[in-house]
Design a protein around this nucleic acid. Structure first.
Length: 471
RNA sequence: GGCUCGUUGGUGAAGUGGUUAAACACACAUGCCUUUCACGCAUGCAUACAUGGGUUCAAAUCCCGUACGAGUCACCA
């Protein structure tokens, strides 16, 4: 069993691509097979510098072990298509020799004209194969004169071609709609379809997982395999991942890119976990699982036929689960990468603060907004707070008593907690009337984390300063 | 437009002819957790099988039509 992930190097990976990679990886590893990375850069115009490293980084972050690829080649290299040009040419020529393909010298203008005519008659454009009728002499002459050419495959004009897919079953495509597809472009590069077939065969790929958008095109692939007399791989086409609004993912959705999510503070494990459940589910219905469990439970037959919608809320829930399960030390190192607020507080104080939010954090960058109230000197009583303070006559007394209780204690969370309890006992107040006044008087806000922790972190000086306002 | 595929509640989904509460998770709402928010726990929710016909003793599950959605028809991948 050998699978491959074959992205083009655009320096961007949206979660749909990643999800396909996850399936490919899980399938290969489930059967102790190999997972390889191949870069499909046959479109020279869309190439981006550093994209290969970027892809490696992404996959590594996600916990993939790449068995063979451009940076760690195996026996089937090279793994970058632009380095395999001679190979494609050789195989294209082989088909020409066999009479399965031919040189085509049609110019773009000629093709444009044919296309326009087809449009007029409201017929889909199919190349008429005129160059396949060229005489040997004419071909030789053109080649000699350096006339630009492409190589096209001869397609059958009648009948149907069978496409077999693990998810979608048997599908028949009418050959009449099949164009004499271009194998080799005039710049000497192969087309995507051609390179794909050559490479998958040469790299001994056994299972191809790819987006459903290739389902129809698979007929062309099959015809190519047949022309060469090669065995076809097993096809597994997967439905698309849609954006939150139910439409196709695009860069405009922004957050649909893995790197964006990563930078916002979503853990790769959580992303992988969530994504694996988009269009697939394990038989045991387990939701939170590790890569190892995913591999173990993966079953390609349970991949869904219909597309699914991306939902940040659920991703956040997964992320939340993973954050909660981190060890404190691990959490602190992690969350500090996303913590960008300025502070002159010492590390112990900061760690205490960050830890308070560990169980409530949805994603890394969220820490900055959660923690805001602790890092500002602002102390303003909102009208809402003021209204509450005025709502009961016992409130001033609560505040005064609390001040007395903490004025001489050792500044620890436990002692503060104890002080609150004493206020409760002395005045016989509890609940909202007990805690709200203290919270507002000390911190100036109505909502926040655990009160004793809040007061502790505010610090003795600041708390006393605030309490003095109520004397 | 031709061809291909899909359609279970707001979202992810279980379910592939048969105990007439269609699971589970997210979201949402409420309650509890001896302060709020959050976490956690509990309950509820929407009264979901696109639609019309069949087949069958029995259909979300099989067949046909319709609607809607998506994909694809490049010297892009």
């Amino acid at each position: 069993m050998r699978t491959r992930f074959a992205p083009s190097p655009t320096g961007f990976m949206h979660i749909g691509n990643l999800r396909t990679a996850i399936f490919e990886y899980a399938l290969a590893k489930k059967y102790d097979g190999k997972f390889l990375l191949r870069i499909e850069d046959t479109d020279q115009e869309r190439k981006v510098e550093g994209a290969v490293e970027f892809i490696y980084k992404t996959l590594e972050l996600c916990g993939f072990e790449i068995d063979e690829g451009p940076l760690n080649p195996g026996a089937y290299g090279p793994y970058v298509q632009s380095e395999r040009l001679d190979l494609y040419k050789k195989y294209a020529l082989e088909l020409v020799e066999k009479g399965q393909a031919y040189y085509c010298f049609c110019t773009e203008e000629e093709l444009e004209e044919m296309r326009a005519k087809a449009n007029l008659r409201k017929k889909p454009f199919v190349y008429d194969g005129r160059c396949s009728k060229l005489s040997h002499e004419k071909i030789a002459e053109n080649l000699k004169n350096g006339v630009p050419y492409v190589i096209r495959q001869k397609m059958p004009k009648t009948g149907k071609t069978l496409v077999q897919d693990v998810i979608y079953g048997d599908i028949y495509i009418d050959n009449s709609i099949l164009d004499d597809q271009i194998l080799l472009k005039s710049d000497g590069f192969p087309t995507y379809n051609f390179a794909n077939v050559i490479d998958d065969h040469l790299m001994a790929i056994t299972h191809v997982i790819r987006g459903k958008e290739y389902l129809d095109q698979t007929a062309k692939y099959n015809l190519l395999y047949e022309a060469f007399g090669w065995d076809k791989p097993t096809y597994i086409h997967v439905a698309m991942v849609l954006g939150e609004d139910g439409t196709k993912l695009s860069k405009r959705n922004g957050d649909a890119s893995f790197m964006d999510l990563y930078e916002e503070g979503y853990l790769p494990e959580a992303i992988v976990n969530y994504l694996s459940l988009l269009g697939w589910s394990p038989e045991n219905n387990q939701e939170v699982f590790s890569m190892q469990e995913l591999i173990h439970n993966f079953d390609e037959k349970r991949i869904s036929k219909s597309s699914s919608q991306y939902d940040v809320k659920k991703l956040q829930w997964f992320n939340h689960q993973y954050i909660k399960n981190m060890a404190d030390e691990e959490y602190l190192t992690w969350v500090k990468k996303y913590f960008t607020k300025e502070t002159n507080k010492d590390e112990t104080w900061l760690n205490h603060l960050l830890l308070i939010y560990k169980n409530g954090l949805n994603y890394g960058q969220e820490i900055n907004t959660l923690v805001e109230d602790f890092l500002t000197d602002r102390y303003e009583i909102s009208t809402e707070c003021q209204e509450f303070l005025n709502s009961d006559s016992v409130i001033p007394e609560v505040i005064r008593t609390f001040k007395q209780e903490i004025i001489n204690i050792d500044w620890t969370v436990e002692n503060i907690s104890e002080a609150i309890n004493k206020v409760k006992e002395k005045l016989g107040v509890k609940g909202k009337l007990l805690f709200m006044p203290i919270r507002i008087a000390t911190s100036g806000i109505m909502h926040g984390p655990e009160l004793a922790d809040t007061i502790y972190l505010l610090g003795y000086e600041k708390v006393m300063e605030h309490l003095n306002n109520y004397d």
